[in-house]
Simulated scan of single mutants.
Amino acid sequence: MVEYIKVLVVDDSAFMRKIISEMLNDHPRIRVIGTARNGKDALTKREELRPDVITLDVEMPIMNGLETLKMIMDNDPCSVVMVSSTTKVGAENTLLAIEYGAVDFVTKPSGAISLDIEKVKDSLIDKIIQASKANVKRINVVKPLERKEESKVKNKTKLKKMVAIGTSTGGPRALKDVLTKIPAKFNAPILIVQHMPAGFTKSLANRLNSLSNIHVTEAKDGDIVRNGVAYIAPGGYHLAVKKVASDYVVHIHQEEEARRGHRPSVDVMFESLASLPEIETIAVIMTGMGADGTEGLIHLKQKTSHCYAIVESEESCTVYGMPKAAMQTRLVDERVHVQQITERILKRF
């Protein structure tokens, strides 16, 4: 007997409720068990129907998506996938929703809806399936690591260091946890690949920059990497690093197709660093579905003698996919709770 993923569809547009419901009901493992037209209606239906996943519109009358999401996550957490517009305000609100606990988001079709809807359909179904397996419980504050571990990880090399972070589903929250704890005078650049479409990575960089002591920016082609700056790959582009004279420079490109379905790709970023053996890389893989980063980590470990690998533990991951795949290589040096990742990075300096 098939066990269906039960979904509640919340949108103020009757047309969008119908379209989303039809898309999801086309899948043999998904059943839409109800719809709601605003946040207040959604909270009532959620109590009555107990869905596994909720699709939640961001902009609604009476009670909007952000207010609804906060009430859900504060009182009785449930997997939520946001349905967002592609406007600047829509992107900013979507990122707030991820901070509040939404598992992921999709953007609403725009323009000729009959042409756009199939693109959205596959993405939405994938995210509903992943959301049904996601860890949406509150991440408890964990104690600092024992001091006795310091001797194990004390780093005495004088090489140029770079931190490279790869993440996907649940990544914005994890990045907030890591970047906001890094001191302003951090003695290395930070390169970040977060799986996210064009239009959202700039808002993510701006949001993290407003919360962090270091400078966080969406990377631009030709940026000379600086210590104490985090560079986020723009949606739709790979991020690599190359050496130009005595500088290390960001290369943003579309010279390669999506890797494992992703552009930007963590593998591409890691592989570019593997071609720079004089760099000591701290490679970090955090929450996300799939296995992006695993091949790149293998390259880093095989081609350089100075790569230290950290992955996020299952306990704190929204989706324990990318870290799990990396662990299976047996090349990971540490697996720790997201709240301890910054501490482990700092101990390498």
Results as ranks from 00 to 15, higher is better:
245 A>C: 07
181 K>W: 00
123 S>W: 02
170 G>H: 04
205 A>I: 09
40 K>R: 14
159 L>M: 12
255 E>T: 13
28 P>A: 04
237 Y>M: 07
133 K>H: 14
204 L>T: 06
32 V>R: 01
199 G>T: 10
283 A>Y: 03
252 I>H: 07
289 M>N: 01
281 T>C: 14
332 V>Y: 10
38 N>F: 05
75 N>S: 10
213 N>P: 04
152 K>A: 15
70 K>I: 00
237 Y>H: 14
335 R>S: 15
211 L>E: 12
50 R>K: 15
26 D>F: 02
87 T>M: 04
61 P>M: 00
179 L>C: 02
84 S>N: 08
215 H>W: 01
232 I>A: 02
310 I>R: 07
105 F>T: 00
152 K>H: 05
104 D>A: 07
152 K>Y: 08
108 K>E: 12
160 K>F: 13
270 F>E: 08
16 M>R: 05
111 G>E: 01
185 K>S: 14
197 P>H: 05
203 S>Y: 09
221 D>I: 08
98 I>F: 02
300 L>R: 14
332 V>T: 11
192 I>K: 09
66 L>H: 07
137 K>Q: 11
248 Y>F: 15
320 Y>H: 15
307 C>E: 07
123 S>G: 00
262 H>N: 02
246 S>M: 01
70 K>A: 13
280 E>G: 08
137 K>L: 10
95 L>D: 09
187 N>R: 13
101 G>C: 13
239 L>K: 09
182 I>W: 12
178 V>F: 03
229 V>N: 01
117 I>W: 00
52 D>W: 08
238 H>W: 05
291 A>F: 11
178 V>K: 05
248 Y>T: 07
308 Y>W: 10
203 S>T: 02
221 D>V: 03
347 K>N: 13
260 R>Q: 14
59 E>Q: 12
64 N>H: 12
136 V>T: 14
223 D>R: 04
310 I>Q: 12
153 V>W: 14
273 L>Y: 04
297 L>A: 03
255 E>A: 11
310 I>V: 05
52 D>Q: 06
164 A>L: 02
149 E>M: 15
327 M>I: 12
89 V>A: 15
88 K>N: 13
5 I>G: 04
146 E>Q: 13
254 Q>R: 15
170 G>C: 03
317 C>D: 03
84 S>P: 03
96 L>Q: 15
35 T>I: 13
178 V>S: 09
156 K>G: 00
288 G>R: 03
300 L>D: 08
6 K>S: 11
219 A>M: 02
108 K>Y: 04
